[in-house]
Structures are given as C-alpha cells and as structure tokens.
Simulated scan of single mutants.
Amino acid sequence: MRLSTVILPVRRWSEGGRDQWLRAESLGFHTAYTYDHLSWRSFREKTWFGAVPTLTAAAAVTSRLRLGTLVTSPNFRHPVTLAKELITLDDVSGGRVTLGIGAGGNGFDATTLGQEPWTPRERADHFGEFVPLLDRLLSEDSVSYDGTHYSAVEARNIPGCVQRPRLPFAVAATGPRGLKLAARHGQAWVTTGDPKLFEAGTPEQSLEAIAGQIGKLGAACEEIGRDVEELDKILLTGFTPDRGRPLESLDAFVDFAGRHFVLGITEIVVHAPIADSDFAADEKVFEQIATEGLAQLAG
C-alpha cells in the first residue's frame, strides 16, 4: 500500500505554502495532491490558489515527490488548454505528475463561468468526451476533433509528456459510465466511498459499499479484456462515515488502512491538517502516520 497526502492551496507560497510541499517530500509521502477548484465549500471566502500553478511551483522545489490533482473536472476546464498546462507541468516536474480526474459536481465551479449547473447526465456526457479527448491530446502531436461538447482543430502538443505514452490518469468514478472510462483510460481509480453514507452510514456499511465499487470496476475491466489489477485503487479519506478517524492516532490509521487494504485499496490519501477547518488534526499524529503508518501496517 502507498500513503499519499492532499495539500489544499490555502496558504501563500511565501507564508508556509512552499514549506508544506517540502515537508510532504521529507516525510516520505508517495504523492502530494491538491484540489483543482476555483473555490471550495468552507474556503469560499478564504484564500484559495490555482492547482496547476501551485503544482508547478511544488515541482520546482521538490525532486522525488509525485504531484497531482484530486481531482480535475470539466466544470471549468477545456481539454485543449488543460493538456498544454499538464504537458508543461510534467516537463517541469521531470515526469512526476498524476492527473486525478472526475466528472465534477454542483459546487461553485459549476456556475462561476456563468453557466447553469449541469444535470448528472450532462456531467456524465461531458466527462465521456473529456477523458478520451484529453487522452489523445496528451499522447499525439496534433489532434483534431469535432464532438458534441468539445472541439480541437490541429491542436499541437509537442513535445508531449515526459511520461510515455502520457502522464497517468487516476479516474474518480462510481457510476457505470465513469467506471467504464476508468477501465479504458485509467492507470488508477479513485473513490471517496459512498456519499449517501457520509451522514448516517456506518464504517461497516462504507466498507461494503467500497467493496461493491471495486467489484463493479472489475466487471468494467473484464468487459474490455483488461485485468483490474493493472489499476491502482485510491481512497481519498475524510468523506466516509469514519471522517477524521484515520488521523486520530497511529493505531486508528493502521486499523482503517488495514480494513481497506483487504478490500483491494492500494493507496490511502490523507489531508494535511488545516487548523480551524474540517481538516483540523494533530500535526504530530499526521507526521507519525507518514513516517510509521505503512511499517506498522506491514508488521
């Protein structure tokens, strides 16, 4: 199992932002992700910086840590411009980028550009075009495409990604259409659990739901002749009924991670603590989990 973290882009680079990414590398996390939003929930009226510039700055001050979004969505992104930014980020980082990508939701991103929020079906329709087109844009020197929602006219992406044939996709999906995209285009799959269980569900129900999601992912892979074991399976914590339990103590983390490892989860992602927020946690416990958690799990 791998252990990764999320660093929300809520600090000025000169006021602790840079130091967080350096600490993530020194603590030995596999990947440090950030959210790709224009603003987010309880941080709506607070500092919030852009994901790609933040990751580019992080790439310039780190050397081993993988970097990524968790997740990027079509809500305010276009595949052509996003591809150019990602190829640049992959180059600056020396090939250390993973793109977490999902269909998005009805948050602030969905209306900031002046559009009406998409229905779930419209989100799935956009996502169904977005992922295959982005796959091509990151893999081919020149792409032309005329679709229902997106177009590209001789979009040039030379020299392409450092990682070949392109940087990896971690596809967030639980529905049948999204799981098919993960099976066909993903190098990893992302879940936050079952959102219907967040408020009133139990940890046991959550485990059962995630096991069911993994089973459906396996069926989607089997349908196209792919081995589901080829995909990493990433759990972003903080959105299951356990909420903050994984960061309560080292023992709590080991218990939580072990239960999900048995299901087939191969990467656990914990949020770097942010005081006075939904992600408040003890910094010492966070560092202890980073340095000892996987060893305790293996033991």
Rank of each mutant, 00 (worst) to 15 (best):
P117G: 03
A152P: 09
E85A: 04
A155P: 09
R166P: 12
E129M: 02
G147M: 07
P120S: 08
V92L: 12
I101G: 07
E129I: 09
D135A: 08
P132F: 04
T72L: 04
R121A: 06
Q163F: 07
F130D: 01
Y150C: 12
S151F: 00
R96C: 07
P159C: 11
L113V: 10
V162A: 08
P165K: 05
D109H: 10
L137Q: 00
E122I: 13
D90Q: 01
P117M: 14
F127V: 02
R136N: 03
S144N: 00
R166N: 09
V97G: 05
D90S: 01
Y150N: 11
G100R: 00
I158D: 10
G105V: 06
V92T: 05
W118I: 05
G94P: 14
E154R: 09
H126K: 06
E122C: 01
A103Q: 07
S144W: 01
P74L: 10
T72F: 07
G147W: 03
K84G: 04
D135K: 04
G105M: 03
P79N: 09
H126Q: 11
Y150H: 08
Q163D: 02
L137S: 06
H78K: 15
G128D: 06
S93Y: 14
C161I: 02
R164Q: 15
D146C: 05
V153M: 11
E116V: 13
L99R: 02
E154L: 01
P74G: 03
D90Y: 08
V162N: 04
T72A: 14
R123F: 12
C161S: 15
G128M: 14
C161Y: 00
P117W: 13
H149M: 00
R96Q: 05
L82V: 08
H78I: 11
P120Q: 06
L113Q: 13
T98G: 01
G128H: 04
T98C: 06
L82F: 02
L86S: 00
G114K: 07
Y145A: 10
T119E: 10
P120V: 09
E154H: 03
S142K: 04
L167N: 01
V153L: 07
P159E: 04
G160V: 09
T98H: 02
L86G: 03
D91G: 13
G160L: 10
F130P: 05
P159H: 03
P74F: 02
T112N: 14
G160Y: 10
V97I: 12
V143M: 05
A103N: 04
S151W: 06
T81I: 12
I158N: 15
R96W: 06
L167G: 01
C161D: 05
L70R: 06
R77W: 04
Q115I: 13
D109N: 13
V153Y: 09
L133Y: 08
D109R: 00
L70M: 15
T98K: 13
Q163H: 12
S139T: 14
L134Q: 05
A110S: 10
G105A: 12
D146L: 11
D125M: 04
